[in-house]
Design a protein around this nucleic acid. Structure first.
Lengths: 348, 348
DNA sequence: TTGTAGGCGTTATCAG
DNA sequence: CTGATAACGCCTACAA
């Protein structure tokens, strides 16, 4: 194999005694080539170490074979979502697509330019709001994209999302089954709800459903996604409502703050108090005690979103373009039946 | 602004009454254009909503303005390194470079093809071994790249790495200063050392230095990077050497397994036993008690590597191409002076 | 300061 | 099944 990186399709054609058209056909696995010719040319390609020039291919074919994930760094979302990246890249790699990872803040024109400049064939959007300007823009311009998350109206849109509503109901079902009745809900911060951030709104709806389903009182607080804030909030809450025996929290890994506050307040998890969180397996295992959670399959979500997007780009159609992942409860060591607990929070 | 995405440089030239050369000059901020002309043409560009075709630019200019991070998924490295991605992408975005994130397994030819096919202008390599075939290959072919990590011989190479050797010494200094003398070292697994994985080898060297500096006995074990393995190993170690009062661990977040094992063995951290780990702030805060660590600044490392690579590509030279980050000890709640502890591990 | 002309390395169309 | 030839959209000497 030659080391010459300047070999072009012309050189191959000349050396093989065919036209560049034929070489191009072979490069792109077109059917209309004689098997003998194919083999002869392929041999020359290998001998010369010819590698097609990606940019030239993209210019001529008008396809970039590149997708991008828009990852809004500035919103400082939970590290839960980190695995979207890895999952998306893995899927793109399998399909021989390039995976662009973009963290720069996006504007209307920069978003459109991504397509107009032919840099990408499609985009994965995350941090979706119920009424999302990016979604409108891309849909109106008929640009291929897939959402991780979903809007209020998803007609004709492709997405993969977790069923946050059902997830919260599942969490409450679990606690009620363990005998808990005084259960608090730590919702995402108010500004997320106000901005109509999907998970914030839907988890709240789930809470309402769960509450009514089990006839529970309203015990809900909106808390920032940070260990300190979770810690402080929990102390205050215990102070106000010492009869609580369990909490469900949306905030992911910072839920460790809840457990620390409980310990400081003299409540042991899970003996005196149960906690259900929201996290990937990795994080849940780090927390002490290992956290019973609604699983957050970030890798899978990124993976499926990328696959779906590539389908959309290649085939212009997707078999199932709306994947709503069911919530899966993983019971670890932070929840326990209440019957071992007295109403004052001490062991019986 | 027009919405027509089919506007080309020809249309702009025609509408502005200039040649495409002039338009090109303005697009690329070349100096030799009359200010009046520039403004007139710029106005037309805006009015027409012209966006240069990225692939065409790349083909003609022979530059992709794209860098890639090769992230070896199969080796299942610690999640510490996840933030390399975000840091690298942030830096690339600032420099107007595209950031390709590649997780597919790489071969000699696929690595070379990345350059030969003109898909990328440069690469960030991670998981560097002292004698790394990828490094040799890229250096021999004179392809731009930067390492996160470093080889044994780094002559003429660019990298950003943590000083693992010094880091371990720092950790031991801290413990010795607290009065500890029976200190164990949980090294990275043997296969990493055998494969000459940089951090594995260098942390071991650091351990030897620290041991001799302080006149400590050899108390070293190679342990897998997994909570369970850390847990089991710690129980065995405590059984063998009950006089231990502190451990230094290289494994990152799974070090939580050490703390759990200590608790199970009746040792409380930090009252009866001190632990120093290796982790990012995020993870260290999740562990209970919050872990005293050598900080692992993954975001910064990814960021600096990308900046350095882009420097190398643009200017063909780098001012300081070998960044060895000093180790920074962050004292949290998992270490404590020994004088409060009796030799049998109970409080005095 | 501006324009002309010739690539850049492919793919695609249409004849043969 | 194969081959000219014209795009693809832009950049870059070189000339004016």
């Amino acid at each position: 194999m030659s080391e010459n990186s300047e070999v072009t399709i012309f050189d191959v054609a000349e050396a093989a005694g065919v036209s560049i058209t034929t070489v191009s056909r072979i490069l792109n696995n077109k059917p209309d080539v004689a098997e003998r010719t194919r083999q002869r040319v392929q041999k020359v390609i290998d001998e010369l170490g010819f590698i097609p020039h990606a940019q030239a291919q993209r210019l001529a074919s008008r396809k970039s074979r590149t997708i991008a994930l828009l990852f809004p760094l500035e919103r400082a979302v939970s590290p839960l979502e980190q695995d979207f990246i890895v999952g998306g890249a893995a899927a793109a790699g399998e399909e021989n697509f390039f995976f662009n990872f973009i963290t720069a803040p996006i504007t209307e024109s920069s978003l459109l330019n991504l397509y107009r400049s032919a840099q990408v064939d499609g985009i994965i959007l995350m941090e979706i709001h119920l009424d999302d300007w990016r979604v409108k823009l891309l849909r109106d311009n008929d640009f291929p994209f897939v959402m991780i998350g979903r809007c209020a109206d998803n007609e004709g849109l492709n997405f993969v999302d977790l069923d946050f509503d059902a997830a919260i109901v599942t969490a409450f079902d679990h606690l009620v089954e363990l005998g808990h009745r005084q259960i608090g809900f730590l919702a995402l911060p108010a500004h997320m709800r106000e901005q109509q951030y999907g998970p914030a709104v839907r988890s709240l709806a789930g809470y309402e459903r769960a509450r009514q389903k089990h006839g529970l009182e309203v015990r809900m607080w909106e808390v920032n996604i940070a260990v300190e804030d979770m810690f402080d909030a929990t102390l205050n809450i215990l102070d106000e409502q010492p009869d609580l025996t369990a909490l469900v929290a949306m905030q992911g890994s910072p839920t460790v703050g809840v457990i620390r506050a409980l310990r400081q307040a003299g409540r042991t998890v899970p003996d005196d108090f149960s906690v259900v969180g929201f996290a990937t397996a990795n994080v849940a295992e780090l927390i002490t005690p290992p956290l019973t959670v609604i699983d957050f399959p970030a890798f899978t979500m990124g993976y499926q979103a990328a696959k779906m997007l590539i389908d959309q780009i290649d085939k212009k159609s997707v078999e199932n373009g709306q994947i709503l992942l069911p919530s899966e409860l993983i019971v670890r060591k932070s929840t326990k039946p209440i019957n071992a607990v007295m109403s004052d929070g001490r062991e019986g």
